[in-house]
Design a protein around this nucleic acid. Structure first.
Lengths: 235, 235
DNA sequence: TTATTATTATGATATATATGATAAAAAGAC
DNA sequence: GTCTTTTTATCATATATATCATAATAATAA
């Protein structure tokens, strides 16, 4: 399905949202009033208000009569919202943020693999196998390594049979796509070795929940260790 | 800080959002056009459009010129959004949903406990200890058992030092509060035994990441098993 | 069957009024 | 003259209404 062009409201929400996440508003530069934002973006007040409401519903903003609109502290932000996560990852790149995100992957993906070992349908196992095949093809330059790696992790999350784990797939895709664009070093990190991925696949096919969890944890831990190493080297 | 009364926009978003999640709109009862919704709720078009944009930004709705507005399939919903989760949990209660949410806790909380074992500050350890104290007081009827249990899990998540794990605290609080309101049986499930919670606290204080993960996993697994058992009994 | 026109529903703008909350000015007390 | 209280003014968001623009679908005419 062709992606529709974003509406003006969505565009404004995107610009303001990423500005907020880049910390462009602070004590010395407080969030502007509605009238000023209308002028700045050249839009009508109803469009501006729709955009502000979108950001309010993601926890970034709060507005009160007469008091104005202000940016909430980061702990109020809905960090697991795909837009908020994308804005976070698109700002000046942070190894710390990538490390923290990998920590959540360290929690989620092994458990997803364990559930996949118990629940995966034949079709779902086939999707995982297909992704492995694409990884092999990528080694010979016949496919995109990043896309193949993402496909693998997404297939495992899908096979978990849990809608909350499935939710993570968009986030993994966003995070991996953006992190590889910013720093080449983690490119090797993300794709890891095909043998490790194959071990996860085998454990899932064998119905070996413990094995699936363990091998998945090893893979993410390996990526995590290299990210920490990259962080130390950059310092 | 006193909670401000929700605006009309927020009220409308809440009503429509929970109706969507309750599957009130389907092929035979499609999502109404803007004009009809304005009439139904007795609000202006600008308020209605603000509410719809809020729900669109949470993945529940999509609108196109001339085509109208429609409810997206559930896999598009941002399930980790606090509002969406609350609407899900508030609809006719589902043991399956609670089980799935407990599965995500099974992934997150042991890992959070492991990070807490490595990173918790003295203050954070004290918060966990305070929660344990409250659990003991609750056994003697001097505190609320549910509130004390929530405080314990929230304190561990806070001590993980990872903003994504911290994000889960609102969700845990929402899910536990709602699940206990609907079914008494899981009341005992959630609070578990104080000894198990104490073991987590001890492992965190000892800096024992493996121990913290293991004991936390045992606690959540125990709760999970009883939820599955409750589901079988109800059938 | 194809081209043209009409209709529909959302997108966007402009304007007006209401409301809540804060700041400033005026009045009263000491 | 100073301080406190009351009243008034101002400000920024909240809500409503009217209008036009645009995209897309349906109906009609050729």
């Amino acid at each position: 399905m062709a992606v529709s062009a974003p509406s003006l409201t969505q565009q404004i929400a995107n610009e303001i949202g990423s500005a907020i996440v880049r910390s462009e508003y602070d004590e010395t530069n407080p969030f502007p009033i509605e009238a000023d934002l209308c002028q700045q973006f050249g839009v009508s007040r109803s469009i501006l208000r729709e955009a502000v409401k979108m950001l309010t519903s993601k926890g970034l903003l709060k507005a009160r009569p007469r008091q104005g609109t202000w940016v909430q502290p980061e702990e109020n932000w809905n960090l697991l919202d795909p837009d908020v996560l994308r804005w976070l990852l698109e700002r000046k790149f942070s190894i710390n943020l990538l490390a923290e995100f990998t920590e959540i992957r360290m929690a989620m993906e092994p458990q997803a693999a364990a559930f996949a070992a118990r629940r995966a349908t034949d079709d779902q196992k086939q999707y995982i196998a297909n992704a492995l095949e694409r990884m092999r093809a990528a080694e010979m330059g016949h496919d995109d390594a990043l896309a193949a790696d993402i496909a693998f992790h997404v297939a495992v999350l899908e096979a978990s049979g849990n809608r909350f784990f499935m939710q993570l797939k968009d986030m993994v895709e966003t995070a991996l796509t953006i992190s590889i664009r910013v720093t080449n070093k983690t490119a090797g990190v993300e794709t890891g070795s095909i043998a490790n991925h194959r071990a996860i696949y085998d454990a899932i096919c064998d119905g070996d929940a413990v094995g699936a969890r363990t091998t998945s944890m090893s893979l993410i831990q390996e990526a995590y260790d290299l990210i920490l190493e990259a962080g130390e080297t950059a310092e």
